[in-house]
Design a protein around this nucleic acid. Structure first.
Lengths: 145, 145
DNA sequence: AAAGATCACGACTAATTTTATAGGGAAGAA
DNA sequence: TTCTTCCCTATAAAATTAGTCGTGATCTTT
């Protein structure tokens, strides 16, 4: 049960954008260089985020991306849902009514539902701003390390 | 970020064993039939559990598997750690000291650590007995559905 | 208007993981 | 001894992951 590079890179990209907020549009080239991620691969990941309202884009010279909202309004859950497709730990939970034919008899389903809720609640509660705050150690984080 | 069939099937198998506790050893054949899982595939999954002390085995006629402990002492975390390899949501967290060379500069690492802790705490807190209890609705569950 | 920079999009691919199937062997109970 | 069951290894199709590459489309700056 692993978060893929899509999700991890997307979070790093958005955090990078937040760090450079107020500097206008940030080119993918620069993010790729700083984060040591292939620019071409980042392009693909950004496309996954198009469905959300997390980013603003601008083309041409001095173009690039900006956060469309304040960092405090960008939750990690939003980012991962877009890039990972879903936060559900098993496919059964991705659509109501559940596709699995064993729904009625499945004793283990409540465990997965509970896990799903834990994951969702936690990630909904963390924003890009929290990540910045934690990095600068200006604020205690609402999660224990 | 999905739990694989190994983890899901293992949990179903152990739950099935718990349901038939006190009936002696339960053959894989019967579990496979009840759970509608390939017996051959189940055999491979059981091998993953050999490293743990969750199961007792017996060969020959009337042989099979039994839970080695009471259902209240079998946590879902134990089962998934064995079958999935780890509960960590990213590979970086699987071994201390962290293998990733970006450890020092990685702003997002605390998020993954926190998520790891959420997942672990939740799954450590749920036992096979909880699953049985919830199924028979004799007891309220410590997780909300 | 031209040039150059940047995002946008689709095709392709190698490696890995997942999800099995198959065949035989070893051990133990009846 | 025989039969049942666990045990172990090999093989493989399918899906997913993690990219690379080429080409447009569009915008800003000059």
């Amino acid at each position: 049960m692993k978060i893929s590079t899509k999700g991890r890179y997307a979070l790093r990209m958005l955090t990078d954008l937040a760090e450079h907020q107020g500097e206008g549009y940030i080119a993918l080239k620069d993010i790729a260089k700083r984060q040591n991620i292939s620019k071409k691969y980042l392009e693909q990941i950004v496309i996954l985020l198009h469905g959300s309202d997390l980013l603003k884009a601008s083309r041409g010279p001095n173009g690039g991306y900006q956060l469309a909202k304040a960092p405090k309004d960008c939750t990690v859950a939003d980012i991962l849902r877009q890039t990972e497709g879903s936060l559900a730990p098993i496919a059964c939970l991705e659509a109501e009514p559940f596709g699995c034919e064993r729904v009625e008899e499945c004793l283990t389903l409540p465990v997965w539902k509970g896990l799903y809720k834990q994951i969702t609640d936690y990630l909904e509660g963390i924003t890009i701003q929290d990540i910045l705050d934690h990095a600068s150690q200006n604020a205690p984080l609402n999660f224990v390390i």
